Amino acid sequence: MLRYFQETRADHAAEKLRAMVSTHATVLRDGQPAELPLQLIVPGDMVILSAGDMIPADIRLLSAKDLFVNQSALTGEALPVEKKPCP
């Protein structure tokens, strides 16, 4: 019974923490940068990335300088991989 109450309290605490944290990305819409939640990003938005940002989805890279991506969760590679724009 004690375990049930502790797990229920922990689940409620985790839900409250999840509600407090939201991930946003900077996109260029109508020529103006805007900070939007990831759920509102649509095809055609230009995403502006800076150091430490999470890449919100599959994106086409238009320009980059020294962009290294940690993709170990996808490929298992231990080191970050440099990404370059393709024409």
Rank of each mutant, 00 (worst) to 15 (best):
L36Y: 07
E77Q: 07
D45H: 03
P33H: 07
M54A: 03
V69D: 01
D58S: 06
Q39S: 15
I55S: 00
V27C: 11
A64I: 05
G52C: 06
G76W: 03
L61F: 03
L17W: 06
L79M: 11
M54F: 03
E77N: 06
D30Q: 15
S72I: 00
D58N: 07
P37E: 02
L74Q: 08
L61S: 05
E82P: 14
N70L: 09
E15I: 00
L74A: 06
A78H: 09
R60K: 12
D53Y: 00
L40R: 13
F5N: 12
A14M: 09
Y4E: 15
L2I: 07
A25W: 08
G44Y: 05
F5H: 12
Q71T: 04
T26Y: 12
R29E: 02
D53F: 01
D58G: 04
L36Q: 05
M46A: 13
L17M: 10
L79K: 08
D66Y: 02
K84L: 01
A25L: 01
D11W: 04
E7T: 15
A10S: 07
V42I: 04
K65E: 14
L36F: 02
T75C: 04
D45T: 04
T26I: 10
K16H: 15
S50R: 10
L74W: 05
A25E: 05
H24K: 11
A57Q: 08
D30V: 00
A13S: 09
K65Y: 11
L17N: 08
I59G: 12
D53P: 00
V27G: 12
A25V: 02
L2F: 09
E15R: 14
P33T: 13
L40I: 08
E77T: 04
M20Y: 14
R29D: 02
Y4C: 13
V42G: 00
K83S: 00
I55E: 00
P87G: 15
P43Y: 07
P80M: 05
M46D: 14
R9C: 00
T8L: 14
Q39Y: 09
A57V: 02
L62G: 03
A13V: 04
M54Y: 03
L17C: 07
M1C: 07
V27E: 10
A14V: 05
P33R: 08
L28A: 10
A10N: 11
R29K: 06
P80I: 04
K83M: 02
P80V: 06
E82S: 06
R9K: 13
S50I: 01
P43A: 11
P80K: 06
L28N: 11
R29V: 08
A64W: 08
A57E: 10
G31I: 06
L61M: 04
